[in-house]
């Protein structure tokens, strides 16, 4: 062995890095909000528009916060799993409807008055839930996506697990699969509810 073999060692390290890299998902960005209090908001509810909800109303409970929209294709993939979940598990599931009208992309927002957007959003969201089933304890409406920004939403659907003291304990980006539900979310809920 001579000093030239060091180069081979460096190359081996590089290969190891690349091999590990193959199994990582570069698009999966961990949220800095995990371990921090759920950002405050006050938003109208879908079922009863005159009522609002804030995270502090959920104090003392472990709950799931799920971001969805009727235009979101992947939401359709995870929806049956949420419906199933809501039937079996007694944990509040709060929906955050994210930019129902604006996110769709099919509307010229510069010409839509606010009350029309509101009407359309409620109508579309309600219709979608009656069509696909409603797993949510209740849904709040984030028309302009500001709350979404506070929660660092970047890829709908997203799901947050929030504990009794109002801390975010986990965030999942993308559709929930049965595997993620069984292996990550359920054990965490059980632990938090102890």
């Amino acid at each position: 062995m001579n000093r030239y073999y060091w180069i081979l060692g460096g190359f081996a390290a590089l290969v190891a890095l690349l091999a590990v890299g193959l199994n990582l998902n570069p698009r999966d960005v961990p949220s800095p909000l995990v371990g921090k209090p759920a950002p405050a908001f006050t938003l109208s509810q879908l079922a009863e528009p005159e009522k609002t909800l804030s995270p502090k109303d959920m104090q003392g409970k472990v709950w799931l916060f799920n971001v969805w929209a009727s235009w979101c294709v992947s939401c359709r993939v995870e929806h049956p799993i949420l419906v199933e979940f809501s039937k079996k598990v007694d944990v509040p599931l709060i929906g955050l409807n994210y930019k129902e009208v604006r996110g769709d992309g099919g509307f010229d927002m510069s010409k839509m008055p606010a009350d029309e957007e509101k009407k359309l959003a409620w109508q579309r969201a309600n219709q979608w839930l009656s069509q696909h089933g409603n797993p949510y304890t209740l849904t709040v409406m984030d028309l302009d996506g500001r709350v979404g920004i506070d929660y660092g939403v970047y890829g709908v659907p997203e799901t947050y697990v929030i504990d009794k003291t109002g801390l975010i304990r986990m965030k999942h980006t993308g559709p929930i699969t049965p595997e993620i539900l069984a292996k990550k979310i359920m054990p965490l809920l059980a632990e938090l509810n102890k």
Binding site: N2, Y4, I7, L8, F11, L22
Partner: peptide, 25 residues
């Protein structure tokens, strides 16, 4: 594809660096 190219990288680069290390001195 990633796995295949990685194996190929190891074969080509690894063997040439080994050859280099053996001959260079």
């Amino acid at each position: 594809r990633g796995i295949f190219i990685l194996i190929f990288l190891v074969a080509v680069i690894g063997s040439s660096l080994a050859l280099f290390a053996a001959r260079a001195p």
